[in-house]
Nucleic acid binder design. Sequence first.
RNA 1: GGAGAGGUGGCCGAGUGGCCGAAGGCAACGGUUUGCUAAACCGUCGUAGGGACAAAAUCUCUACCGAGGGUUCAAAUCCCUCCCUCUCCGCCA
Length: 428
Amino acid sequence: MHDPRYLRDNLDTVRSALGKRGQDVPWDAVQKLSEERRALTTQAEQLRHELKKGSDEVARRRRAKEPAEEAIAAMKQVGDQIKDIEGRLREAEEALNDLALRIPNLPHQTVPQGTDATQNVEVRRWGSLPSFSFPPKPHWEIGEALGILDFDRAAKIAGARFALMSGTGARLERALIDYMLDLHTSRHGYREVLPPVMVNRQTMTGTGQLPKFEDDLFRLRDEDWFLIPTAEVPVTNLHREEILSEDRLPIRYTAYTPCFRREAGSYGKDTRGLIRLHQFNKVELVVFTTPEQSYAELEQLTGHAETILQNLQLPYRVVMLCTGDMGFSAAKTYDIEVWLPSQNQYREISSCSNFESFQARRANIKYRPGGGKKDAKTDFVYTLNGSGLAVGRTVVAILENYQQPDGSVLIPEALKPYMGGRDKITKE
RNA sequence: GGAGAGGUGGCCGAGUGGCCGAAGGCAACGGUUUGCUAAACCGUCGUAGGGACAAAAUCUCUACCGAGGGUUCAAAUCCCUCCCUCUCCGCCA
C-alpha cells in the first residue's frame, strides 16, 4: 500500500518506477477516484460542520425556550445532503482502496532492472561443490530407497504434492526445525513465537497476499479463514494496529509453522519430490525496525539464514532479485539458493526481503521516534522477513549433498546432537 | 452447541440524547520545590484526514467511545446485525 497523498501527487513517478510491475494497474481510474475522493471529503466535512453548528443552535433555542422548527427543517435538509455525499464518498473510497491494494511496492534504487529470474544478480557464493564418484541421485530416489520418504502413501491419503516422512526422515525434519529455532533464538536474538496457521482476511491483506493473490491460498469453506502460505503473515500481523515505541525496535521474531500453498499455475513444475508441496515446514524470521536501520537489518537477516547453511556445510549462493522477479510487497529481496547435485544447479531455499513501509501501511503498524516522547510524530515501521530456512528443501539439500555411494546419507556434524547422536541414515 | 455478562483514551474508570473527544485516577513527559531519593504542587498528555502559513511553530475544520447499518435537527448514550472477551452448562485435546 502506498501513501495515498504521495500516490495522488506523484502518480507518473510511481507509474514509471513500477515499470513492468505496474502494468495491470488502471492508472487513470486511480487518478480519477483519487481526485473524486478528495473533493467529496471536503464537501462532506463542510456539510457536517454546518450540521453541527445547526444542531447546537437547536439546542440553544430549546434551552432558551425559543422556537426551533426552522433550524430543524434546515438541518434535516443538510442531513439528507450529507447522506448523499457520504454514500458517493464511500463508493469512491472502496473503489480506490481496492485498486490501491493491488499496486505493488516500489523497488529500492539498488535493485537491478529486469524482467525475469535470468536477470537476477549473483551477490556471493559460499562453500565448495561436492564431487561424486557416481551420478548423484535426486533426493526422492535416495529417500524412498532408504524408506524415509513415501510419496505414494502421501498421494493416497492426501493427493499430489504432499509428502510423508517416516522414521529417520521425520526425525530429520524435526531436528532441523529445532536446530534452526535454537540458533536464531540463542545466537541471533530472535524471540520464538508459535502463531495460528489459519488467519482472517484482514491479516492476509496486511502482508499483501490479499486481495490480489487469493487464488494462491487455501481457504476454508465455512469460515472466512485462510491457511497461511508463510509464517510472515501471522507474525507480521502480530503488531497490526499498534504503535511501538522506538526503544523497543528492532523487534525480531522467529517462528516455525507449516505453510500451505495451492501452487495454482505451477502444473508440471517440480512434480516429484519435496521441492514444491501444498504443505511444507518453514522457520521464518520477521523484523520490525526503523527506516534508517532497515537495510542493515536486511543484510544481517540474510546472514542469519546463511549461517544455517554454513553450519550444515551446504554450498549456496546469494542472488539479488531483479525488479521483474520480486514479490508483490517487497522493495528488495535476496534469495539464498542451495546447491542440488542431482539438478546441477542452485535452488531457492530462502527469500529475504525488506518491505519498507508497504506492509506497515496496510497493517497500520507504527512507531514513535525519540525514546517514547509524546510530542514525536508517529511513523510507519519498516518490516522485513526471510526464511531461515525452508525445512523441506533443507532436507532435500542434505540428502543430495551428503549421499554416499552405498545409498546411505551422512548427517551434518551440527545436526548430530539433534539426531540422537547418530551420524548416518541407512536403509530402514 | 445452550444460557448469561460485558467491550469507553497507554491502563483503570465515570458518562443513558445536545454545552462530551469524553469527568476522575494511575502511568508517562516538562517544570517548581529538594543535599539526594521520595513526596507535594503546576503544566502537558490519543490517532488520523483536510484547510490556513513559503515552511516549522501555531491556528482551524472533520472523523473516531469494538465494527457496520438505522432512528433523530442532534448518538458514547436509543434500535438492528456482526465481531471479540468473560462466566456457567454440554462436548472435546
